[in-house]
C-alpha cells in the first residue's frame, strides 16, 4: 500500500471530526503513517463537516485527500457535494438515508445514521458506526486497533456506547454480505 486517502463527510454534530481522528490514530497503532485534517464551516453546530485521513507506509506529503480512494458520506448535502468528485476506481460508502442509488458497483449503502440513532438516541455516534462499517468493508486498519483508538478518544462516560456503536457498524457489513 502506497497511499490511501479516506474522506468522511457529513454534517456538524455527527462526530465526523472525532471519527477521522480515531481512524488516523488506529492506523498509527497499526504501525503506519497517518494524518487527519478537518474541514468545517464557521458554524459551531450544523453545516458541513469533513475529515480527510491519509494512511501510508511512508512519510506523508500532502495531508488532505487529493484523489479520494474511499468516501464515506453521512448526509445528503455531503453526498451532493462529494459524490460527483469521485474517480472511477474510488469506492463509496453512503448512508442509506442519503440516496437509494447503488447502481454503481463501487457504492455500498448502509443504514449508518439509523443505527447510530438506535444506539445513542442521537447523531453523535454516527461517525463511529461509520468506522465500524469501514473496517469490515476495507480492513484498512485492524479491528482491535480501531477499538483501542475509540476507547482512547471518546469521553469515558460515552466509551461503552461508542464501542457498541463500532461493533454495530461492523455487524452491518456482515448482515449485508
Amino acid at each position: 500500500m502506497g497511499r490511501s486517502e479516506i474522506r468522511i463527510a457529513g454534517a456538524g454534530g455527527q462526530g465526523v471530526v472525532t471519527a477521522g481522528r480515531i481512524l488516523a490514530e488506529a492506523a498509527i497503532l497499526c504501525g503506519r503513517q497517518a494524518t487527519h485534517s478537518q474541514v468545517y464551516g464557521p458554524q459551531s453546530r450544523g453545516g458541513a463537516s469533513r475529515s480527510d485521513i491519509v494512511i501510508a507506509t511512508e512519510q506523508i506529503g500532502f495531508p488532505l485527500a487529493d484523489r479520494v480512494d474511499l468516501l464515506i458520506v453521512l448526509s445528503g448535502e455531503a453526498y451532493e457535494k462529494y459524490e460527483p468528485e469521485l474517480g472511477d476506481d474510488s469506492r463509496l460508502i453512503v448512508d442509506s438515508g442519503c440516496t437509494t442509488d447503488s447502481s454503481n458497483n463501487t457504492t455500498a449503502l448502509f443504514p449508518v445514521v439509523e443505527t447510530a440513532r438506535s444506539i445513542s438516541g442521537g447523531l453523535l455516534a454516527t461517525g463511529v458506526v461509520a468506522l465500524g462499517v469501514l473496517q469490515r468493508f476495507t480492513e484498512v486498519v485492524e479491528a482491535d486497533a480501531l477499538r483501542s483508538a475509540v476507547a482512547r478518544r471518546v469521553p469515558p462516560k460515552h466509551r461503552d456506547m461508542n464501542l457498541k456503536a463500532l461493533e454495530a457498524g461492523m455487524d452491518l457489513v456482515c448482515v449485508a454480505s
Partner: peptide, 9 residues
C-alpha cells in the same frame, strides 16, 4: 489553517 488543523504522528 491546514497545518494548524492537521493531526499526525
Amino acid at each position: 489553517e491546514i497545518v494548524g488543523h492537521t493531526r499526525e504522528s
